[in-house]
Amino acid sequence: MSQIGKMVAQRLALGLLTLFIVSLIIFGCVELLPGNFAQEMLGRGATPETVAAFNRELGLDLPPHERYVNWLFDMLQGDFGRSLANQREISELLGIRLQNTLFLAAVAAVIAIPLAVSLGILAALYRDSIFDRGVNAMTLTAISFPEFFVAYVLIIVLGVTLNLFPAISNISEELGFWEKVYRTALPALTMTLVILAYVMRMTRAAIINLLASPYIEMARLKGLRPGRIILKHALPNALAPIINVVVLNLAYLVVGVVLVEVVFVYPGLGQLLVDSVAKRDIPVVQACSLVFAATYVLLNLLADVLSIMSNPRLLHPR
């Protein structure tokens, strides 16, 4: 097990390096954004003098590298700074929004991952049957549309026509758990449809890939049932690619929600990011981007660890 500990430590260090590089890129890109916060804020009152005064007050007149270093060191001390737009602590702002986004991602994952993996296993078991083709066609159709389109279709059908779920997913902390689930149903469903095909097709392909291997032939010659062959003999060896695609999609559920949150006016991190970009609220944009990057790094680390745990060769060395 110490091997895994060592690997985790290595990957974590690499992850920190990645985050550092990402912070540079984020900062650089934000610098390139057209427009200026002071002008945006002051509106018609933006004369050269007021803009200069405003910038000086917020430290925006410093050269970029100084601002970067200040930002980085503050962040290393846990201080994300304050929002330019409303002067609130960014960490506080992020906390609530991140919670909401993670909640939505969790609801979507709980529906999507088991469904996709089971569909993939079934499709592998009954490959080339009508079931297999049907599942393939449907999931492919679902990912072929842009997610906002899927979202609007769901709103029209499930929200407006059938009136099953609210079309706007406005949640707040005082709501009960099930009420929150009920309100997030449509965005969660949208994201389920978006990731279903990837996970399902990867599961199917990973399993089918193994069906020609000698140990599967051996299992068949031992007279085992087809379902048992797939579940006991193929699936454990197909776990590594499946884990990887599942985790990548989990990352997408957290990070890729921007459009879906906007469509459903969901108070998550994506919505915050979009609003902040519109307001040129640079510190918030940077903090959001960094949280997204950290999510990717952590989830990929998780994928690596789980893949190793699923491989007896690495888990039980000679």
Binding site: Y215, M218, R220, G223, N237, P312
Partner: peptide, 22 residues
């Protein structure tokens, strides 16, 4: 299926490949 493994069994060329690594 009911005969295979119980009344007729098979030993493959490469045991390293024919045993399930998992």
């Amino acid at each position: 299926r009911q005969l295979r493994g119980s009344r007729i069994a098979y030993v493959a060329q490469s045991a390293a490949a024919a045993f399930n690594p998992a």
